[in-house]
Design a protein around this nucleic acid. Structure first.
Lengths: 237, 237
DNA sequence: ACCTCCGAGTGAGGATTACTAACCTCGACC
DNA sequence: GGTCGAGGTTAGTAATCCTCACTCGGAGGT
């Protein structure tokens, strides 16, 4: 009867259920375990895996908790044993992925000299990651960045660590004279990130095909040298 | 290059292309040609106004249809007389706003010479618009860009017209030699848009305060000249 | 062997939501 | 005066997120 493929319905439940936990993270996953080593319970793992696999061909808003539970082979209620929200589930999955990618990024930067070379490498790394892990890119760029509560969530904290990494490189470049010092590093960072995200978004949403290698080169050309044509200045502005 | 805006057929929804009514008073005194477009019914106008006012301090996903109907002073069902969806309501409101801003942008560009000057002006215009009409910026940047169906909606068609405008300026600049010709204009456009949107998003979401005038200057510096420190040119990598 | 505790997991709803079908009302027009 | 259709309403419905009370089984103390 229902021919409703409409995403982002949010009936049921209350919207502004205030969590007693200002961090937005639920501590239900951190009980006093016998020892520091505890593998997460199988049900929890299955739930996270189910969400990821469903995200392969459906957007988060269109995935129902019933669906998640069914593909995970558990009951709906179990989701709420481990996650405060449907959204909290997304955040925790995303946070784990981001943590992993942060480590990878740091690894990729090892042994590279010079701020500009590092920036180039980082740009390539982001593009390549978005290209190879589509679900991750979608989660980050379009399921999450638009929601208010994301900015109090765990994955946002990881995003901040990315920011620290990037700002560190920029400051290094400013000190060594590789990068101009008349603009705030935070702005430079936002421009770089914005460029990357915007091109990747166009690619994700409009199935515009790109090759990370080539795009890295073009982006660096643009970001490093600017859009002005070098040569005789016609109109000084 | 592949983002070349190609005209697609409009979605099935019907349009009430209404001319703007500055006085806010819309007496149905005019006979109104039978087959021509009439002024939209009051209920419809109230619904659109209600949504806009609710968006002032709530995100779209958290606004219920009941709420919209209540603040509009009509019943819920009336919404679905004029809009196919809750989202369709958002899209139509947004499309009207965008249409208006597109006209404004074209007006602001009149009498400006030179591609770089036009780009600078356009950047200022976007920043200023986002700064002054917060609700509009929020609608566009974070309620809409993440949804699949947006890319078949009316406001997306207007977005494409923005793209045409921007690409036109870029191509003009390439021809006159103001802008480098070794990079695809579509990429340049995406970088510019990404920079603007990313900075504005940070400003909207993290209440980072900016001044459009100052930010325009910095952004143009960055986008025009690049992030490299000018000076002794050593090796062009 | 028995009791207790506790985490993993379940079953059965409740509350709220987006959306719909059927109906009413009233002026215009023939 | 009958019809038609647009503007608007009443009274729902299915779907969805989330909660609460409950079961099961094993580890460990006594």
């Amino acid at each position: 009867m229902s021919l409703n493929p409409e995403p982002e319905r949010a009936p049921g439940g209350r919207f502004f259920q205030v969590s007693q936990n200002p961090t937005g993270r639920k501590d239900v996953s951190e009980p006093a375990a016998p020892n520091g080593d505890r593998t997460p319970p199988p049900g929890r793992q299955k739930i996270e895996k189910a969400l990821k696999s469903l995200l392969e061909n459906k957007e988060f808003g269109a995935i129902t908790t019933a669906e998640i539970a069914k593909t995970a082979g558990v009951t709906e209620a179990l989701i709420y044993k481990y996650f405060k929200d449907k959204r909290d589930l997304l955040y925790q999955v995303l946070a784990r992925d981001m943590e992993h990618h942060l480590e990878q990024a740091q690894l990729h930067l090892k042994g590279i000299n010079g701020a500009r070379n590092k920036i180039r490498k980082l740009i390539w790394f982001y593009l390549n990651t978005y290209a190879e892990e589509r679900v991750f890119g979608q989660m980050l760029m379009l399921e999450v960045l638009s929601f208010h509560d994301f900015y109090q969530s765990a994955p946002y904290q990881v995003l901040k660590r990315f920011a620290i990494l990037e700002l560190g490189i920029l400051k290094e470049g400013i000190e060594t004279g590789e990068i101009r010092d008349d603009l705030p590093p935070a702005l430079i960072r936002q421009v770089i990130r914005g460029s990357i995200e915007n091109t990747c978004l166009a690619w994700v949403k409009i199935s515009q095909k790109i090759s990370p290698d080539e795009l890295t080169e073009n982006l660096c050309q643009l970001l490093f040298k600017g859009i002005e044509k070098p040569g005789p200045v016609k109109n000084p502005n």
